[in-house]
Design a binder for these strands. Structure first.
Length: 847
DNA sequence: CTGTAGCATGGGT
DNA sequence: GACCCATGCTACA
């Protein structure tokens, strides 16, 4: 109301009055100012009856027969056009629509006049400010932006949008109403949130007398238009319509689109931007959706979810800083190619065509992009013809990527700074914000979390079994590796099984740890063979399975036993030494000791005994020295034993498994070569080794196994010896000979570096490039790609210009022989004899 | 020999 | 089956 003298908007009245009341909303967005009598008639719903009785357009409700003045904006809200023709008053339509709500197919044309009011979208503004080469004549892809009926004219403000213009940190979330109801009182449709908290407000309520309907607009994928959606005027209908509860508080980091995804009919106003659920819809100053804007929406609807911007409040703040409007455009997870040295970022075609200047020449055009630090970058935006299509790339992104310290798996985001339209490029580390619906996120070691399960992806607890220790590792924001598509990147892209993320090492078990998990397959009767007096079980057709880690020990009667920990109560239970314990085992599975077959029964194993049983390396993985040893184990295992060792742990998909299938024979080997490298068949293949086999594989293994078994027995009978001295390292190795699984343990006695024997020419001391990484597809020629680390205390052999693998294998070959000789000479315990496979594990202290 | 540009290929959707 | 797109391949500088 106002005290301004005004003429009544009612053309049939024309009264001048100082007091006027607000009537219906005009197409300009303003309200008709009515004098008191006219306003009263309007509020009573008798305006048309009073002033339009002689006008044409009166029709009867098909249900109740009530006369309604159609074709008049004043009564426009009062009826619904029926599919079968005719009209229905809103009261009647309320019944039918509430009873049979169909959000996807709302009453047609009810609010269509709202469209002409949609204003021009700011995204239509010139891109000349973006293209570094200055104004470049171009047009957006017609299919996306040049809608058939762009009607950019009025710049009016929808009265039922909640505009939070006081800062980008404050989001208002409003339901959109399309054409306003004249009677509709403008009320805040959502609760504004302080501190950037996002809260969902209840939808506007069409306060049309006793019509208790909520009406909101929703983009209809069928009609490609915005349609009013009716819902019952209660909160339950919010849910039914997918509108988040008003009581729900979202954190600052709740991705807008994530929220939107929960509420397909919701729009968010940030500053002067309105983000719609069907993509982040950018609108101009007036915030009115335009046809063009709808084209935008449509194009974004077409975007795969993984490209939808997941920008958070915080990020928006970071980017916008000065409270300018940011329109998130799209984002993309960096692939290895994107983040590689080539410096080409493959752009999703639709994104490129929707948000970047259109280019007709393959050379493209330079694009000015600003990063979140405000630094300007110029990329070449271009395309390649590809199968009658185009492949869009941004070239020269490497410096920017590096500047943002992004790598494969991280996400680059593209936004638009309004009003100038500058492109903003942001980055997000993969571990920071889970990408909603961004393909999937694989959590190594645990099951792939379902899309949308942000918690599962953000914080994944994984139980890692290590030599009897059940280690719970909270993989908080770690171990999240990107997956472009379902089952992609790691699983499907089997050719590229490199897991380079440093976070991966959190989950890496040492080889020692891994081999301890291997068990014979259940229900498989092994054949038995004697090798050098030792009986070996052979599982000729089966791969070993991963069993539950146990602790071997000797009970008071001197009998060998195993200790196994219940998965539920974590108590240790005694089982026979030959018991096969499945990976999931609880007290109830304890068939060997019925008195302790429930979690409630007492635990036999004392902490002291447990301490003695537990391998030193697991007592405290954080222990520097121990972790050093652990790292050495990893390195030794991965680098040195990729022939023997890889053949041992099999079974892709277990995360640790490397196949020996891809073994590369070093160039010195020729057909007929009888060295271990060439002789040893891939796991599970090749000839079987009999007990009397004296091949180059079996002979050293036989000796090694014998000595190690002796040591193991000795160690187990002397619990105190389990704590290794710094001069003695034990390396357990499972060796698979042919298809036989043999468990061995190697000693790597530590000696002063000066006493190392027979250092091959070209041997250098270097860090293992593989430390902390598991390359399931290890290829020597790619090893230089790994970032070197220098603290593993591992000496490896290498020679410039030659394959590392060759030297590892060669050394492995030598080592086996050396090992055999050493054992034969009884030097396995002796100082000065270094038994190594592949490489020498050295303690830091020994240099 | 190395790095790059452009195209081709093939798996995934 | 068409399209997308990650990446391999190769000619070339």
């Amino acid at each position: 109301m106002s005290a301004t003298m005004e003429v009544c908007f009612n053309s049939n009245c024309k009264e001048s009055s100082e007091k006027w009341k607000r009537g219906w909303r005009r197409r300009t967005g303003e309200y008709a100012h009515l004098c008191d009598p006219c306003a009263s008639a309007y509020e009573d719903g008798k305006f048309c009856e009073t002033f339009h009785t002689n006008a044409s357009g009166w029709r009867c409700c098909e249900s109740c027969g009530k006369q309604i003045h159609c074709g008049c904006i004043v009564s426009f809200h009062m009826f619904v056009l029926l599919d079968a023709g005719g009209i229905e008053c809103l009261t009647c339509s309320k019944k039918s629509y509430i009873l049979t709500p169909n959000p996807a197919w709302p009453p047609p044309l009810h609010f269509l006049p709202s469209h002409p009011e949609r204003m021009k979208d700011i995204s239509m503004k010139t891109w000349s400010g973006i293209a570094a080469s200055g104004p470049v004549p171009w047009h957006q892809a017609p299919s996306l932006f040049n809608g058939p009926s762009i009607q950019a004219n009025d710049q009016l403000k929808m009265p039922f949008e909640v505009d939070v213009s006081d800062g980008i940190g404050r989001y208002g979330l409003s339901e959109r109403l399309s054409m306003a109801s004249p009677e509709m009182k403008q009320e805040p449709s959502c609760e504004r949130l302080a501190n950037g908290k996002m809260r969902f407000g209840p939808p506007e309520i069409l306060q049309n007398g006793n019509i208790g309907l909520k009406v909101k607009e929703q983009y209809c994928p069928f009609t490609s238009d915005f349609m009013p959606i009716y819902s019952r005027n209660d909160t339950s209908s919010n849910r039914s319509l997918g509108v988040a509860s008003s009581s729900k508080n979202e954190t600052d980091d709740t991705p807008i689109s994530s929220i939107l995804s929960q509420s397909p009919s919701v729009s968010i106003t940030v500053g002067k931007q309105v983000f719609s659920s069907s993509g982040l819809d950018s609108c101009g100053e007036g915030q009115i959706r335009t046809e063009k804007s709808r084209g935008d929406v449509r194009s974004r609807n077409q975007l795969l979810p993984r490209y939808r911007p997941q920008i958070t409040n915080e990020e928006l703040q970071k980017i916008s800083g000065d409270l300018k409007c940011i329109t998130p455009l799209f984002e993309k997870m960096l692939t290895a190619s994107d983040a590689g040295r080539i410096g080409r970022l493959v752009l999703p075609k639709k994104c490129a065509e929707a948000y970047f200047p259109s280019i007709n020449q393959a050379e493209g055009l330079p694009l000015n992009v600003q990063d979140i630090k405000g630094k300007e970058w110029v990329f070449q935006f271009r395309f390649w013809p590809n199968n009658n299509s185009r492949m869009y790339v941004l070239e020269g992104i490497t410096p920017c990527i590096q500047s943002m310290q992004l790598q494969a798996g991280d996400v680059v985001t593209f936004s638009r700074l309004e009003p100038e339209g500058k492109l903003i490029m942001g980055g997000r580390k993969a571990s920071v914000v889970p990408s909603f619906d961004q393909g999937e996120v694989n959590v190594i070691g645990s099951e792939t979390s379902s899309p949308g399960d942000a918690n599962a992806r953000n914080k994944s607890a994984d139980i890692i079994s290590v030599n009897g220790h059940m280690k719970e590792k909270v993989l908080e924001d770690k171990l999240v590796i990107p997956a472009k598509r379902k089952n992609n990147y790691i699983n499907a892209k089997s050719k590229r099984l490199r897991i380079e993320n440093e976070d991966m090492m959190e989950l890496k078990l040492t080889y020692k740890e891994a081999q301890s998990l291997i068990r014979a397959p259940a229900k498989i009767v092994p054949s038995s063979s004697i090798v050098d007096g030792c009986e070996f079980e052979e599982f000729e057709e089966c791969e070993p399975v991963i069993g539950r880690p146990t602790l071997f020990g000797i009970d008071h009667s001197g009998e060998k036993i195993q200790w196994v920990q219940c998965e539920d109560c974590l108590k240790w239970r005694k089982v026979p030494a030959n018991a096969l314990v499945p990976s999931k085992w609880t007290c109830s599975d304890n068939a060997w000791d019925l008195h302790r077959s429930t979690c409630s029964s007492a635990e036999e194993l004392t902490n002291i005994l447990l301490e003695q049983l537990l391998p030193a390396m697991n007592k405290d993985p954080r222990n520097k020295e121990e972790s050093s040893e652990r790292d050495a184990d990893v390195t030794v295992a991965v680098e040195g034993h990729d022939t023997l060792a890889n053949s041992t742990i099999q079974g892709e998909g277990k995360g640790l498994i490397a196949s020996s299938e891809n073994r590369t024979k070093h160039p010195c080997h020729r057909p007929g070569c009888t060295c271990i490298v060439c002789l040893q068949p891939p796991s599970g293949k090749g000839t079987k080794h009999g007990h009397s086999c004296d091949c180059v594989v079996c002979t050293p293994l036989r000796y090694r196994f014998r000595t190690l078994m002796e040591r193991l027995e000795k160690k187990q009978t002397e619990p105190s010896s389990s704590s290794q001295t710094s001069h003695e390292k034990e390396l357990d190795v499972d060796a698979c000979v042919g298809s036989s699984t043999v468990k061995c343990s190697l000693n790597v006695e530590e000696v002063p570096s000066s006493s190392h024997v027979e250092e091959p020419k070209g041997r250098i001391s270097s860090a293992s490039p593989l430390k902390g990484q598991i390359d399931l597809n290890i290829q020597p020629e790619r090893e230089e790609d790994f970032s070197p680390r220098s603290d593993c205390g591992v000496v490896k052999y290498s020679q410039p210009g030659s394959s590392d693998r060759f030297f590892r294998q060669q050394q492995q070959h030598r080592s086996l022989e050396s090992d055999v000789i050493g054992n034969l000479l009884g030097k396995q315990e002796g100082v000065g004899c270094v038994n190594i496979i592949g490489c020498v594990a050295l303690d830091k202290e020994s240099g």
